[in-house]
Each structure stands twice: as C-alpha cells, then as structure tokens.
Design a protein around this nucleic acid. Structure first.
Lengths: 227, 227
DNA sequence: CAGTATCCATTTCGATACTG
DNA sequence: CAGTATCGAAATGGATACTG
C-alpha cells in the first residue's frame, strides 16, 4: 500500500524515503552511527522493532549493508546510501530556514547530548581525560544529569556519574542549550540571558565553547523575516 | 502523531515532507500546475479529498499559497516552496539512479500523457495547429487513445477525438513509451524493437522526436552496474 | 549487544458519490 | 471547476516485555 503507481523517479524514490523515520535513520548513519544501539540513540523515540524493520527495508532497497565484523553487527551505507547525503543535508537546511519554531515536544535531552557528544573533538582534551558535566535543573527525569568524558581515544556519554573529576559543569535550560546547539541563539546571549551557566575554573570555562561544536546546520543563513 | 519529537532540522522538515503524496504534489506545482484539477492529473491515483487535505497542510506550513485570480482558484509555491525545487530534483535524480526498475503497477498512461503534453513546446507547431495521436493497443481501458493538440497558444490533451486531422499517430506499448520518456531506452531502439511505431507522412514522422521532449531526468547518468 | 514478539489504539487512506 | 462527505478496510506504529 505504499506504492504510488507512478513511473516518475521522484515517486519511486519517495516510495522508499517517505516512510516515517527512514530519513532520520539515514541521517544517523550518515552522522557515523553504525551499531543498532547507537542508531537507537539518534532516534530515541523510535521503537526497536520499527528501527529493525526500517533497516531491513533499507537493506532490501540497497541503501544499507549489514556487516558482521568479528562478533558485532554493524550497518553501513552503500553507494546509493551515501548519495542520500546531499539530500539529507538539503532537507536539514530547508528545515532550518523554514521550520524554525520548536515546540516543547521537540526538545529532547537524550538526543541533544547524543549530538553534542558526537561533535566533540577527542583531541580537545589535550592533556588526558577531561569530563564535562551537563545538568538541566528544570528536568525531573533521569535525563537531568550527563557526563561527557573526553579522552584522546574517544568521547563517551554517561547518564550516571562515572566518578572522574569534573572540569566544568554546564548548567542549562534545555531549550536554551538546544537553541545554542542549533545556532538559533549565540552562546554569549545564552549566558547573558541566564539560560546557560558555566561552573568551574575560569580558564576551563573559557575553553568550553572551543570543545563544544554546534550543529552542522548552525550556520545556515535564515531567510529574512517578513513582518 | 506525525511529529518526531526532535529538534533536528531534518526531522522538522520531514514532519511535513514525509507525508504520503506531499512531495509529489510539490513536484507537480514545481512542474507548473496551479489549478486543482491540473494537480490531480499529475497525481492520478490520489483522491481529491486527500489532495485537498495535503494542499491545506502545505498552506498552513507556508509552502503553498492559495490565490483567487478572477473566478478561479489557483495554488502557487511560496519562497519556501520554491526552495524545495533542488530537493525534488535531487530525489528524482536519486530515484533514476537507484530505483531503475518499473513494475507494471508503475505504468500509467494518464500520467505519461500528462507529462508528455507538458513537455511539448507549443512553438513546435510552426504552421498552425498540429495533432498527434497516441494509441496504446494493448490497453483495453478508456486510456487507450489520446490526442495531443499542439497550437501556438498552448498544448491540449484529449482522451477523445477532437476531430482535427491527425498529423502523426504514435502507436506504442505503454512500457516502451514510458521507458523512452524516462530515458531508459533510446527512441531508435524502441522503434527497432517494435514497441513503438509512427504512422503518417515521413517528413512529419521524422519531426516527432523534435517535439516530443523527454523527462527532465532522462539524462541523469546511471550508476555503473556491478554484476 | 542486537534485536523479536505481541497486541491493540489510532491513523490513514482509497473509493465513491455528491455539492455549490 | 473545485472541491466535500462518508465510510469501511488496512496498515501503521507505539509500548512493553522478552530472548539468544
């Protein structure tokens, strides 16, 4: 029931790509996730059953390949999948420009931290391990506190205290940090508004914006607003 | 229930754009249709109720504008809608490259003739009105015979004999003409295979390929096939 | 870690007929 | 021409629990 009955190549593409969640799974693969549970973190509200089904559909369509390296399963984009990169990029750019408002429903600390984690350069921790703590005081859930462990070997994300000393704590309103990440709000303005506060030695505090890269779409030029 | 609960701009874009049929309506608007019943011809299997609903959604999203010119309603893309042009294009290109097979279900004489009609240059009829007849002998439906009336003022499409003298008749197998239109099969090869035959004075027969432009995606380079 | 199984509420869509 | 009304069938997906 998902076929359009059209020979038009746009229709043939959309038969696959307009299924709910599919583009977000592709986006997550493009962003570098390759294991099932990593993919899940990029689409936190998707049930594992559905993710599994979408992956199978993408494999059948020749967009994704399943690999068994050693004893882990992983997923990778085929050449066809890689060619969706510019499309996902264009969609994100379009979304930034024309769907700028976020509802409270769109804020998600799990996804935000997952994205932030991914964008941190491991080499930022020049001298050994560095831990950043993020806290969202307004949240009452178990998604309130996060620890990002930056290590030359990689960047880890915990929702529990891993026990290492914390260099800087970022205390933020969820919406504020989300807007900063998206490039909707300047870091400086966020701090000024009180929606974002750093705690820690001032030298380290000043270094935080160096580590914490923003979304790849943060620099998309917004359309001039008509009023 | 169609929201993703993500601040990611790709997700925000797809909340709108991954709804079934939506991209095809946009494609049709980009191709130049602006009236309800013209749009319908570009998405023949979509019910009018659903088209109406999608248009309303697109209007609410700021992608389409409804206009009342004189006594006709028409739809046009806004600036946001125009910016979907490159995306639709990229999707069609991707579809050509990676979804090359067409099922019998994908063949549709209504859509094919609608597309062919659109691509004919009215000025091709240099000396007054010219009528091309298309016939699909294998079809038993009322979609078997078509008349394309090329006139300096525009190109009309009829599924009944308008009564004007016919310059050339194109007799074709539906799949063959569809493949020619998509650029999957060369005109010459189609004729040779017997899937496409022209009837009429040879001077006019030779002119047909000049009038009958192919799909905008016909020239997309196909990926090298692995075997 | 990498998924499957189950199950039902909800949505969605297609077909058809009809209207100002 | 430009839609709306209605209605049932199908599918879709969310939640949750479970498994090798």
């Amino acid at each position: 029931m998902s076929a359009y009955g059209q020979f038009c190549p746009v229709a043939k593409a959309m038969e696959l790509l307009d299924e709910r969640w599919t583009m977000l799974v592709v986006r997550e693969l493009l962003a570098g996730s390759s294991h099932f549970n990593d993919l899940r973190r990029g689409v936190p509200r998707m049930s594992p059953t559905l993710l599994s089904r979408r992956l199978r559909t993408l494999i059948r369509a020749g967009v994704v390949e399943r690999q068994y390296d050693g004893n882990r399963t992983s997923y990778a984009l085929t050449e066809a999948g890689q060619e969706l990169g510019p499309i996902v990029n264009a969609l994100g750019t379009w979304g930034m420009r024309w769907v700028p408002e976020l509802g409270d429903e769109d804020l998600d600390p799990h996804l935000l931290m997952w994205d932030i984690r991914r964008s941190i350069d491991p080499d930022a921790a020049s001298n050994g391990r560095t831990v950043l703590r993020f806290t969202f005081p307004m949240l009452r859930t178990n998604a309130k506190d996060w620890w990002v462990v930056v290590d030359p070997n990689g960047v880890g994300l915990c929702d529990f205290d891993p026990g290492f000393p914390v260099a800087v704590t970022v205390e933020a309103d969820l919406r504020t940090l989300t807007k900063v990440w998206r490039g909707d709000l300047a870091w400086r303005a966020a701090v000024k508004s009180g929606g974002l506060t750093l705690h820690g030695p001032s030298a380290l505090r000043r270094a935080v914006p160096e580590w914490l890269k923003l979304s790849g779409f943060a620099d998309v030029p917004r359309p001039a607003l008509a009023s």
